[in-house]
Amino acid sequence: MPPVETPVEKWAGKIHEVNLGGDARRLVVGGETTLPFLHFEGAIPHPPAVAVEVQDRPPASWAPELRASWGEAMEDPASWAKKAVEYGADLIVLYLSSAHPDDQNTGPQEAKKTVTRVLSTVDAPLIILGPGIAEKDNEVLVAAAEAAAGRRVALGFCEQKNYRTIIAACMANNHVAVAKTPVEINLAKQLNILICDMGLAPDSILMDPTTGALGYGLEYTYSVMERLRLAGLQGDKMAAMPMFCTVGEEAWRQKEARATEGIPAAWGDIATRALRWEELTAMTLLLAGADVVVLRHPQVVQRIKATIQKLMTKE
């Protein structure tokens, strides 16, 4: 019987460490020199962070279960963020949803106001996302970037078709960019290269490989993330950005998290199923290398926080 040797892989690379937040509360993500939670092999200096999604106006389309869980806090993004921090959020994702032309079509002034209010209410680092329409994103994110100067927030989404203005705003105010690409490793790397070409440092980028929820393309996200992480650890610096996943949004968009009528008994009751849907999506992507998971339900936040802690504890 040959002795059992611990099979350790030697990785040449290291995931970039991205600093977020102001003096009052800093957060670092990334820095891994091994695959997720394999403590026997390398360093995992910072646990993955749990972010809570807060919208700048009450999200009428959210599932009733979700809306009930936050209650009145949703009326005001600052109090919502405050409550999220109480539930354990490491950072806040602030969606400027109201800026969407089909929503309230709010502009840079409103964005500035919202960001300032949230920043003055919570110390937790912020990730600010635009409504996803290029023109509006550029408008409100530039304003948000100025309002958040000195607090090193992350701004998104930079996409291949629209990233330059957001990156310029990041560079002007020392912020971090969230680069989003559609579930493809080479596109992810390419966008990172393009962003770095503009002059933003590699340690100022989070990459969002696009999240597919459990049952809705999760396996694609999972494998793209595994490949990105492997490439990063093998020394490809343009694949070594910490990864960011919009878990809550994707999980709660699906029928499984919303449907209450006319569904098979095998689906189980809505609350159990919906929460597990979000949790398992998060869990799986954490194992693929997610460094920031954005969640929606307070109970899920607590459970995933606790689970990360267990995964970070060498037993």
Binding site: V142, R164, I167, A168, A172, G199
Partner: peptide, 12 residues
């Protein structure tokens, strides 16, 4: 400088 700088950097 910042306002124009962003436009110079993003190519507008």
């Amino acid at each position: 400088l910042r306002t124009w700088g962003i436009q110079l950097v993003d190519g507008r």
